[in-house]
Every structure is written in C-alpha cells, then in structure tokens.
C-alpha cells in the first residue's frame, strides 16, 4: 500500500460532484412510490404509515453508522489516488501483487463505469490478468464503499460479516486460478 502519511506537501486532489437526481434514482423513486400505493390498496393506508414510521426509526438507529461510512467512502479515495494505485499493482507480482490488487479493489469506491476502465488501465500499467481479476473481484465482493454504506444499511449485520469474511480470500484465489488457467493455455 502507498504511504498515507507522506502527503503533507501535496494539495488534495480535486473531486467531481455527482448529479443527485439521475435516471436510476428516478426509477427507484417510481418503484418505491408504486410499492407504497400498492401496499395502501392491498393492506390499507395505516400499514403504509406503519412502514414509514418503522423505516425512519430504523434510519435514526443507522444514522451514525451511515455517517461514518460516508466519511470513509469519501475520504479514502482522496488519500489513495487512482494513478498511484495503477502503478503499484502493475509493479507488484506474485501472491503479494494479488493481495495488493484485492486491497486496492476493495478500497476504490465508485460504480462499474469507474472500475472497469481503471481495471483495463492496470493491464497497460503492467499487471497480468490474475492481478486484474483480483482487482475486479476485490471491488465486486469486498468493496468497502458498497458494504459500509449500502450492505450494512439493508442486511442484518451478522449476515454482512459472514459474507464479507468468507469472501475475503476469494479475490486472491480467483487471481491464482486465472494465472494457472492462463499458464495451461499458453503451454
């Protein structure tokens, strides 16, 4: 991992603002409104009120966790600039390279439109397919941003921990499997 401390001399990187109300949010909003109306018709509007109360109560309990998760998700990428990550994974090899690739995949937030171009760039920076697959799998299975903000908000905490801990070794194993597959293909 690149040192997080030796940055006092540099200014922080610029971050871009995201559009809050995009197409996917409107679809989600429409589905939720339709769900609310359907519950009102099927089970009565009192039940809609109950679910609203339950959800906001749950949100109040979750709020500190979501707040801390948002801070981590927003701050980590500032401290871990993307170009440095690419060079680091490209340089490392062996199992260590797979571990570094997994950790970087887990630490980098953002959707597929950010991750896959970066993963393709890793190959250019010198990473092999095993490291690229470890990086993509680290992001898919262990993405901190997704787990901290989303998964912990929706699913029971013990389930999230079980899934996360069991998935922990997977990206490195998948990278090793891809490497041996490529070797067999080349032979």
């Amino acid at each position: 991992m690149p040192s997080l401390k030796n940055i006092a001399a540099d200014p922080p990187p610029e971050t871009k603002s995201r559009k809050v109300f995009d197409g996917s949010f409107l679809v989600l909003l429409a589905l939720t409104l339709a769900g609310g109306v359907a519950v009102g018709i099927v089970s009565g509007w009192g039940r809609v009120g109950d679910i609203l109360l339950e959800t906001f109560g749950f949100l109040a309990v979750l709020a500190p966790k979501i707040g801390a998760g948002i801070f981590i998700a927003a701050t980590l990428p500032i401290l871990l600039p993307r170009d440095r990550v690419g060079r680091l994974i490209g340089r490392e090899s062996g199992v260590r390279g797979l571990v570094v690739a997994t950790a970087c995949g887990a630490a980098i937030p953002g959707g597929p439109m950010m991750t896959f171009p970066l993963a393709a760039g890793l190959g250019v920076a010198g990473a092999d397919l095993g490291a690229v697959i470890a990086f993509i799998s680290g992001w898919s299975l262990l993405g901190l941003n997704r787990t901290l903000i989303w998964e912990f908000s929706f699913l029971p905490t013990d389930l999230v921990w079980i899934r996360y801990l069991l998935s922990l070794p997977m990206p490195v194993l998948l990278g090793m499997a891809a490497r041996s597959l490529m070797q067999r293909r080349a032979a």
């Binding site: 949010f25 609310g36 679910i51 339950e54």
Partner: peptide
Amino acid sequence: PRVIVALLGAGFFAEL
C-alpha cells in the same frame, strides 16, 4: 436520498 427511498421501497415490497 437513495438510502431513504430504497429502504422505504424494501419495506413496501417486503409487505407485498
């Protein structure tokens, strides 16, 4: 806004 709307949606759909 996404967390709030999605949690409400999950509540409604669980009911349905």
